[in-house]
Write a protein that binds this DNA or RNA. Structure first.
Length: 875
RNA sequence: GGGCGUUUAGCUCAGCUGGUUAGAGCGCACGGUUCACAUCCGUGAGGUCAGGGGUUCAAGUCCCUUAACGCCCACCA
């Protein structure tokens, strides 16, 4: 292997990212086919972003993680497939197009359904590419040739297939039910799409007139709902009211006669102890009405204005009606009081308007049978959720799940494949029924209905395609915990029901990206973090590295843009390291590393550290601790290789024999090569670029083999011995910088009582010249006496003397050494205590006991040295 | 009303296989233009790991409990 090119001074990310991405893509490296046909597949279905959306920081997080997993598995030799795609996002997209129409001075209703859909498709064609090109900028190594859209033909077919099958299995029903209605969007929404916030509202107390001149005091937060009351309920054993049960009450202002009923649901202690029943606009009341066979009277239109059942209030907006009705009741002497009251208000997840429970005809999925399977798959461990505490959240939701309202009164989406006959019959099919009197269903399906099929529909299901056979079930579902119910649970239900297999074996959940103060990102707060701005400023790699390493799985990430800058600094550091290595190569470099026996101590040390790192990183990847893996790689390169091995290697590189040079070069190349491999899933662009400058085998880092630890290089003894030399360097620096104010440029002569480290200190004395500017070093004979006028420091059984004639402050030296001695004494006592403890020696792992023994010996050796120094100084 | 999470340095966070003297970035202080790097190098100050109890030879790490904060789920007018 040999290198040819000179590296530029810095990484030009703007130029390189584009070039490298196109190069990878053009070579087909993102396709699973780069792996051998018999390679084990690894598959991720990308959570499809909204087709008309723009990239936000949350996308950057999921791309960072999923691309990391994909690249890692690809390097491990798997047939890695990351299936990209986009979601039609029914409501979101429809709203955007409606806004566009409004800006044009028209509306959805005005242009009509057909034209509206045409306009939406146009919109999709125009803006749908934005998000995908932005994903490319983030380095996403997904197979674009397999990209899908939830509304394309194949997926629409899958959706129809599923709907029809569920219907045939009796798991879909249609009928009038009380549902969450969004008056602004004019559609039903599912329970999940309703957010409940605690708010302070008014609670209106009033008199419900009862026959015979009595009245029952009642409270409501929504006076307009009075118009739809069909009963007044009291507790059957409430002495205040029980004599009224069975009598007739009269709806205020409408004077409609309704019964007074008794029901134990009513809480005597709460409010007035009596309850008005509005079954068409309240979920509790609905249940009570069912029990008592009360009629349902709807008083709202689709737009939440009062309908014909509201008498003279018909046509009023719900809130105007509230005011007017209350004023009229006040005039009629029926009001009691109005109080402030804190309660839960249901609001639309999109737009925030208040949701009205309303009766309407909708399609539902009987979810119980599907939910049971989904529950089991996780309980039996077929599917693992990371972090695992989300499993409990998942169980709780599935155990209490309600039927899923899947119909939406929108136009943009999968139209429900059904026809309804005048006589009420339903025909569910891809094709229209024969005969007259059939009306096609207008409703479309909830977006999440098609998303739920994503892992298999994208691979061709229901066709038994080769892709489906090879890549399904998929491997990991990586997504945010906020859509665990919306999406993950539904994919599991649908996957199990229609393919008899869990759609993936692992669910990896990430958190939300927040600002550096932990606040939710929002336009109103003005704390929006635009990933593309950060990419423009620092490059993609630093952003990705920051996102992955600044948190841990399942927790929200408080992104500080300073972390991105720090990531950039790290990238630059690695660049400079590579630059150093490539700049010091000459001629052919044999691949691989010499055997441990051929290496000097610093090389044995760095190889030991490297292989321990590989081991740790493997463990961390196996346990999905990607952030910690990234941090460890960074620490190794920046804090161990750069300041120590790289500096030390300058000696053989500049002063060594040819053989020594070659060994140092091979070690340096190897360490950087492995470092870049480990780093590639985190920082794909820069690592690929650097790797190209290093001597290497193979075409591209993206396809290079993932590192595997070689235990034969793990060398505790080398780490221990190197540690002594490193500590000596630190001690000399400490004396220079902190004990005495010696300028860094001043060369020092030191005298060393080397103890049992004589050989290493002799051999590697150049380290001190390189790292702490020591220009000559004298090793004392074992029986030699200590030099005078010196600052001293102790490492293991080694004492370092720095002669400083006339500068030595004996008092300060004594104080420092005394403090050091006290510290050692404390540590010895602690360690000795452990070793004297029968329980520790017998129960702790042998290697832990052994480590403590070695430690104790070291500490004791040091203490002897310190004590000698003190005696000398004091005497 | 249930459930989950968080609490570690001035700030933002790591430290999920229990085991040396608890780490990083930023900030702060001191000092550095020698042949990879000022997007840098060397050094330092700064923490009773929220409180209490327990398990263990050993606890920031495991268990119980209290508190504060955050999130999710839930039909009290």
């Amino acid at each position: 292997m040999s290198n040819t090119k000179q590296m530029p001074k810095n990484f030009d990310f703007a130029e390189a990212e584009k070039r490298l991405y196109e190069w990878w893509d053009a070579n087909g490296y993102f396709k699973p086919e780069v792996a051998p046909d018999d390679a084990e597949p690894f598959v991720i279905s990308m959570p499809p972003p909204n087709v008309t959306g723009a990239l936000h920081i949350g996308h950057a997080l999921f791309v960072s993680l999923e691309d990391l997993m994909t690249r890692y598995e690809r390097m491990r030799g798997k047939a890695a497939l990351w299936v990209p795609g986009t979601d039609h996002a029914g409501i979101a997209t429809q709203l955007q197009v409606e806004k566009m129409l409004r800006d044009e001075g028209t509306s959805r209703e005005e242009v009509g359904r057909e034209e509206f859909l045409k306009r939406t498709w146009d919109w999709k064609e125009k803006y749908g590419g934005t998000i995908t090109s932005q994903l490319r900028r983030l380095g996403a190594s997904c197979d674009w040739s397999r990209a899908r859209f939830t509304l394309d033909d194949g997926l629409s077919n899958a959706v129809q297939e599923v709907f029809i099958k569920l219907y045939e299995q009796g798991l879909i029903y249609r009928g009038p039910r009380l549902v969450n209605w969004s008056p602004g969007l004019q559609t039903a929404v599912s329970d999940l799409e309703v957010e409940r916030e605690e708010e302070t509202v008014k609670l209106y107390f009033f008199k419900y007139p009862v026959e015979g001149g009595e009245f029952i005091p009642v409270a409501t937060t929504r006076p307009e709902s009075i118009l739809g009351d069909t009963a007044v309920a009291v507790h059957p054993e409430d002495d205040r009211y029980k004599h009224l049960i069975g009598k007739t009450a009269y709806v205020p202002m409408l004077n409609r006669a309704i019964p007074v009923i008794g029901d134990e649901y009513v809480d005597r202690e709460f409010g007035t102890g009596a309850l008005k029943i509005t079954p068409a606009h309240d979920f509790n009341d609905y249940e009570i009405a069912q029990k008592h066979s009360l009629p349902l009277i709807s008083v709202l239109t689709r737009k939440a204005t009062i309908n014909e059942n509201g008498g003279e209030y018909a046509g009023l907006d719900r809130y105007d009606c509230r005011k007017k009705l209350w004023a009229d009741m006040e005039t009629a002497g029926l009001t009691i009081k109005v109080e402030n009251y804190t309660t839960i208000v249901p609001r639309s997840q999109r737009g925030g308007e208040i949701i009205e429970p309303m009766i309407s005809t909708q399609w539902f999925v009987k979810i119980q049978p599907l939910a049971e399977k989904a529950l089991n798959a996780v309980k039996t461990g077929q599917i693992k959720i990371v972090p695992d505490h989300f499993e409990r959240v998942y169980y709780h939701w599935l155990e209490n799940i309600e039927d899923w309202c899947v119909s939406r009164q929108l136009w943009w989406g999968h139209r429900i494949p059904a026809w309804v006959h005048d006589d009420g019959r339903i025909h569910v099919s891809k094709t229209p029924p024969k005969g007259d009197g059939w009306t096609p269903e207008e409703d479309v399906l909830d977006t999440w209905f098609s998303s739920g099929l994503w892992p298999f529909s994208t691979l061709g299901w229901p066709q038994q395609t080769p892709d489906l056979a090879r890549f399904y079930p998929t491997s990991v579902m990586e997504t945010g915990y906020d859509i665990l119910f919306f999406w993950v649970a539904r994919m599991i239900m649908m996957g199990l029901w229609f393919t008899d297999q869990p759609p993936f074996h692992t669910v990896y959940l990430h958190g939300l990206v927040r600002d550096k103060l932990g606040r939710k990102i929002s336009k109103t707060l003005g704390n929006v973090i635009d990933p593309l701005e950060l990419v423009d400023q620092f490059g993609t790699d630093p952003l990705r590295f920051a996102l992955v390493t600044s948190g841990s799985a399942g927790n929200d990430v408080n992104l500080d843009t300073e972390w991105v800058e720090y990531g950039r600094n790290f990238l630059n550091k690695v660049w400079q390291m590579t630059n150093f290595v490539t700049g010091n190569l000459e001629g052919e470099i044999p691949a691989g590393v010499p055997s441990p026996a051929e290496l000097d101590l610093p090389a044995r040390w760095v190889m030991s550290r490297l292989n321990k790192l590989i081991k740790n990183v493997q463990y961390l990847f196996d346990t999905h601790q990607y952030g910690e893996a990234g941090r460890q790689i960074r620490t190794f390169l920046w804090d161990e290789v750069a300041p120590w091995y790289l500096e030390i290697s300058k000696h053989p590189l500049y002063n060594g024999t040819d053989a020594e040079k070659t060994i140092a070069r091979r070690v340096l190349v190897h360490v950087m090569d492995i470092g870049l491999r480990l780093l590639h899933p985190f920082m794909p662009f820069a690592t690929e670029e650097m790797w190209g400058y290093l001597p290497h085998e193979g075409n591209a880092l993206i396809l290079a083999k993932w590192a595997v630890a070689d235990e034969s290089y793990i060398d505790e003894e080398a780490e221990l011995q190197m540690g002594v030399l490193m500590d000596m360097v630190r001690q000399i620096r400490d004396i220079r910088n902190n004990q005495y104010d010696i300028p860094p440029s001043k060369k020092l002569g030191v005298i060393v009582a080397p103890g049992k480290h004589r050989e290493n200190i002799g051999l590697y004395g150049y380290i001190f010249a390189r790292l702490c500017n020591v220009d000559h070093m004298t090793l004392l004979a074992d029986d030699a006496s200590a030099p005078d006028d010196s600052a001293s420091a102790v490492v293991s059984d080694v004492t370092v003397y720095v002669p400083l004639k006339g500068m030595i402050d004996v008092e300060a030296e004594i104080e420092r050494l005394t403090k050091e001695g006290e510290k050692l004494t404390g540590q010895i006592a602690k360690t000795q205590g452990m070793l004297d403890n029968e329980g520790f020696v017998s129960r702790a792992k042998p290697e832990v006991v052994e480590r403590e023994r070695i430690r104790l010996a070291e500490l004791q050796a040091s203490l002897i040295q310190i004590t000698e120094q003190l005696t000398r100084l004091k005497g």
